[in-house]
Each structure stands twice: as C-alpha cells, then as structure tokens.
Design a protein around this nucleic acid. Sequence first.
RNA 1: CUGGCUGUGGCGCAGUUUGGUAGCGCGCCAGAAUGGGGUUCUGGAGGUCGCAGGUUCAAUUCCUGUCAGCCAGACCA
Length: 480
Amino acid sequence: MGKKNKQFVEEITPMEVDFAQWYTDVILKTDLVDYSPVKGFMAIKPYGYAIWENIQQYMDKRFKETGHKNCYFPLLIPESLLQKEAEHVEGFAPEVAWVTHGGKEELAERLCVRPTSETIICEMYSKWLKSYRDLPFLYNQWCSVVRWEKSTRPFLRTSEFLWQEGHTLHETYEEAQEETLRMLDIYKETAEEVLAMPVVTGQKSEKEKFAGAYATYTMEALMHDGKALQAGTSHNLGKHFTEAFDIAYSDRDGELKNPYHTSWGVSTRLIGGLIMVHGDNRGLVLPPRVAPTQAVIVPIASHKEGVLDKAMEIFSDLKQEIRMELDDRENYSPGWKFNEWEMKGVPVRIEIGPKDIEKGQAVLCRRDTLEKEVVQLDNLKERVQLLLDDIHNNLLYSAKTMRDEKTYYVKNLEEMKELMSTKPGFVKAMWCEERSCEENIKEDTGVTVRCIPFEQEHLGETCAFCGKPAEKVAYFAKAY
RNA sequence: CUGGCUGUGGCGCAGUUUGGUAGCGCGCCAGAAUGGGGUUCUGGAGGUCGCAGGUUCAAUUCCUGUCAGCCAGACCA
C-alpha cells in the first residue's frame, strides 16, 4: 500500500506556495484545456467545455426570460466600419487581427476579426430599424472574439475567447440604463447563485470604461491571491454608436431619432474565476450547479456479486435528476479513483461496496470539506440533492468570507502601497473620481480602480489619495 | 514588449560541460492476482531529441535564428 509508486498524475503545486503555477497545473491536469500551436489560442477539452455549456444554458435561459433573442453576426468586419466610432477604434485597434488576403488575392479593404461586435451589429441594425414600433431591439449572440494579447493565460486572458454579447436598442435613455443594469444583475445572480462566486458590482471609472461607452458597469470578484477579476461588464453606450452608424427611426412625432444602445458580455473567463475562487491544494472544487459531473459512483470490490448491479441501479435512478458518472473502470483501485475525482472537483462521491449493500446504505463524501457520511439507499437521491445545495451555499459562504477578510480600508496612498505589498486584496477608500489621481495611484502602486460600487458607505469628505473633495467610495485592487 | 527559465516516447525527468544518432520512472497494451484512500508481479509496444539553418567526417549535445510554454513586470480588458 502507501504511495511508494506514485502512479497518479504528478502533484499539483500547493496554492499558497505559488498561486500562478497552481492555476496552470490544475487546468492542465484536470483536462479542462490544452495549448494549441498558436500562441494564446487554446483548445477547450470536454470537461472544460461542459462547464461552459452549463453556464451558457443558465444564462441563455435568463436572457430569453427577459425578452432577448439570439442571432449571429459575421466574424469579419471591414476596416472602415471599425473606424466609425472614434474612441472605439482607438481602444481596440492595437489588438485587432487582420485578414488581408482571400486565397491568393489581396483584399481591397482589409477585414478585422471581431474583437467585439458593436460595429458590425450597428451596421446591420441601421438596416433593420425603421420605426419606433420596432423598438426595443433585444438581441444576443454566442460566439468567439479575437484580441491579440501580449501575455495570455488560459481562460483568464486568451487571444480568442468564447463569450456572449448582448446588443440592445431603446427609445429612451432611461430604458437603456434600465437594461444595462438589469443585465448586470443577471450576471451577478449567475456569478453568485450558479458559480458560487461573490462579486462586487458598480460603475467603472472614466479611464477603465469600455472604448466608446457612455458608462460601463462591472462585476468584480476577488481571487485567492488578492487580485481582482473583472467577471462581466454591461455598457450603456448612449448614442455614441447609433449616431456614428446612422441608426435612426421615425418616432411618433414624425422626427428621425437615434436610439439608445447597450451592450453586455461575459466570457469563458468566468471559468478561470470559479477555478481560482474555489480550488484548493487537491485541485478543482467545482460549484455543483455547473459541475459537468455532480456526483460520481465509485463501486468498491466491483467484481463481487451484486456490487456493480447495485451501482448501476443507483446510477440510473439518480441520473434522472443529477449529472452522474459511474466509475466502473476495473484497472484502477478505489483509492486512485477517489483522488482523481477529487482533483477534478466533482462535488459528491458515492462509495458503494458489499458491506454497504448488506446494510442497504452508501457512503457519501463531499468535495468541499471532504467529510464522509453514511446514507440509507432509500434516501440517497434526496440526500445527494440536498448535499449539492449545501455545497453550493458553503462555497459561496467561504468565498465571501475570504473576500471580506481581504477587503481593507486605507486612509492614504502610503497605507495602500504597504498593504498591497504584504497582503493584497480589495481596498475601499473615498475617491475623487479624477483621472489624474487614478493614474498616479496606478503608477505608484500598480493598483487600479475596480469600480465605484453601487453599495456605498460614507468614509469621509475627501479623496484618500489626493485630498480633493470626494463623494464616493471606490474599490481598488491589482487586476487580472 | 522587457527580464529570467524551459522544450528529449502520452506525462515527469536524466543525458548535453569533455559531439560518435538515446535512458529511467510513471502511464499505455497483454496476462494473473488484488480491490473500503494513490495495488502487485510477469511480458510487450512506443522517441531521432520544438522547428530551421550553420560549424563538423559526425550534432540531442556547439553556434545563430525562430516557434511555443512557464514565472515576474510593462501594456491591455
């Protein structure tokens, strides 16, 4: 016995030793992704893709419940279109990939691979919108976009990533603003209720807002290493694009008007987030509501009479309501399987062997705490379902606790600098909202304004960093 | 983009200093035993050393370039 022969996949670097390395180890060893021959582009393997599908499924449902419909817009955008909105080009041009040839012929106008689709979508909307009766436009697309990144990391920042982008048009500013915040709300609910990942929501500073937006709202999550991850954004684009693209409709009063516009997106970055928020030294800890496998059955002594039959019977019963796996591989010992499924983050493991069958019971082991319990087979399904909810709640609670422990108040720049070098995390402080101040802070500490949270508290009258009058509290952090 | 490190069967590594066309462990395949926390034994298959040039009688080994990856930073969402 023992582990003199380490047959298992190599150990994962402990997360407190080297968080970045831990992350890379985990995603590769659990078969979520693999690197492709092109820098910054990755293949998402079945286990990773299944997580995305579960996220997609939930969100798509929410989008449709709120009146949105899916469509699809082209991958390629003519350069002239990209350039129509001034701030937008400036923001995205540096990281755009270009198509210059069709076969052997050079194109008259080069085409960019979408870094985001505002421009091409607005171009289409300008053809589709005629009357106030057509509004609102509530469309979404699931696709991938390309941004030529200099340094990349699977899920967190890749040159191509999967996402959804909603693009809506409205008659009034108020409606657009309402939509912008409604979608951010859905994002927050997804993060917390599905991914068990607590987020802070609020508004982006002028410097950090989307290129071409009137206002950008964001949800920010805090990772174990004290860095913040922007997990989703929702933009009120005002009329910036609709004017630039000449999207106009005849209103009730006979006037031609430009509608108000929003866009909002979340990406496969969410997967990176949930890995970093919940993982531990044994590997992944997947939140039950998106885990590809919610419970795995490991039969013990499966060669013995009746064991496998019983395991299969349980499997086919539970799989009606729970995403199940039956690990009937004969060439691995139970202990080996335990470790593998733990590394892969499966929330619940069900052990069933001859002794259990005799007593009409099974052993459950939960991934988050690794606690075991004995359950009567009659109650098994109900118990597993309860356990899945319990694990979700516990993960959300632990993540919140972790975040709160890493959320600090500071009175000045020196304090923040000191704090960030010793125990990085979220910093809350009064802030003047001025760009020059923001730039100073970044230069001095590497910290950026994550958002001006909706949930405000009053900590004083002046900016903690420059002393000018300040009305609002902002969250600061180093960012992914 | 800058600095540091790396690239040898599926995975992890040794070999490179003192050039002579590869070796170990795990995994994989076959058989047997084992089976409640990383099983054991026996037999077997599998690599031309990231890629491209150069030096040399001869390059995994030396030189140059290039691609990809890791870590840190800059930049960027």
